[in-house]
């Protein structure tokens, strides 16, 4: 049962990703990306990361990609303004060929790890152990993230602000 779900989700994820790369219209790409992200969140859930599953949907699907689609619509790009990519498929194909060795390399390295997962605790992946870990060990990065977001905020304000005459 789980296998079937896994296969389904991963094929959705990969299909979405492929769609994102292949579609010409940015909106279609973005929608494919959403599909991919939601399928990924399903994979997270399979990995018993229930909190991350929700975070993925809330932050990624709910905020980041929403923002992206919002911007796409906001710009209301006409077909004529889209880049012409006549050799897209060829470059994609060649690039894919080029990436095969990299994948094989990394996958071979991973293949040597013991494959099956350890037995899961009752609450592994829940919000509580995650919070404990976060505030016991990862407090500093967590705080730094806030500074990072602040910087991004200032940056967005700087870029988004109306230009002076």
């Amino acid at each position: 049962m789980l296998d079937v779900i896994f296969l389904l989700l991963s094929s959705f994820a990969i299909g979405g990703a492929l769609g994102m790369v292949l579609f010409h219209q940015p909106v279609h790409s973005a929608l494919s990306l959403i599909l991919c992200i939601i399928a990924l969140s399903g994979l997270f859930a399979l990995l018993s990361a229930s909190f991350l599953f929700m975070v993925q949907i809330i932050v990624y699907a709910g905020a980041i990609i929403t923002l992206l689609i919002f911007i796409i619509m906001f710009l209301n790009v006409k077909e004529a303004n889209l880049p012409k990519e006549p050799h897209k498929n060829i470059t994609l194909f060649l690039g894919a060929l080029g990436l095969i060795p990299l994948n094989i390399l990394i996958l071979r390295a991973f293949y040597k790890l013991p494959s099956s997962f350890l037995e899961k605790n009752d609450n592994f992946g829940d919000i509580k152990p995650l919070g404990m870990e976060l505030f016991e060990h990862w407090l500093l990065p967590f705080e730094l993230i806030s500074i990072l977001l602040l910087v991004a905020l200032i940056g967005a304000v700087v870029f988004g602000r109306k230009e002076e005459a």
Binding site: L144, I147, L148, V151, A152, I154, G155, V158, F159
Partner: peptide, 10 residues
């Protein structure tokens, strides 16, 4: 690194 780079980008 990201803090530094993001500010630099801007």
């Amino acid at each position: 690194l990201e803090i530094a780079s993001l500010s630099l980008y801007v």
